[in-house]
């Protein structure tokens, strides 16, 4: 596949992803907008893939080595923190407890 054919494929994917994103996100109730935000935060942690490619380069020069290392720290904090904090929040959302009636 030539470079520009691939570019067109990528642009197609981008366009579809944007519309899909709008579709899916608009179904999220305002109740969950904070977890949505921290959840999407975790998802953009996918830059960890890019950070790994830089940090894992063979024979990096000084700049690439250090930049890759720092990018790796930032991206790892993003991924781990994002998913953990989202889980912590979502755990708290509970429905009215049915056991209340049993107590009465």
């Amino acid at each position: 596949m030539t470079h520009y054919t691939q570019l067109v494929v990528e642009l197609t994917i981008l366009a579809l992803a944007i519309f899909l994103g709008i579709e899916v996100i608009s179904k999220v109730p305002t109740l969950l907008h904070t977890p949505l935000m921290s959840g999407t935060n975790a998802i953009h942690g996918i830059v960890v893939v890019g950070a790994m490619l830089v940090a894992g380069a063979a024979d990096p020069d000084l700049l690439t080595g250090w930049v890759g290392f720092i990018a790796m720290i930032l991206a790892a904090a993003n991924v781990v923190g994002g998913f953990v904090v989202t889980d912590r929040m979502l755990e708290m959302f509970k429905k009215r407890e049915p056991q209340k009636k049993a107590e009465e």
Binding site: Q6, L7, E10, I13, L14, A17, I18, L20, G21, I22, V24, I25, S26, H33, L36, M37, T40, N41, I43, H44, I46, V47, V49, G50, L53
Partner: peptide, 28 residues
């Protein structure tokens, strides 16, 4: 930014994930 990084590395997963986050942030 993540989506643009995807174009730079030719990585579909970055393009899509970035677009999802971008859509979410924009809507909010």
């Amino acid at each position: 930014a993540a989506s643009a990084t995807g174009f730079e590395l030719g990585s579909n997963v970055l393009i899509v994930s970035g677009a999802l986050v971008g859509a979410s942030g924009t809507l909010l």
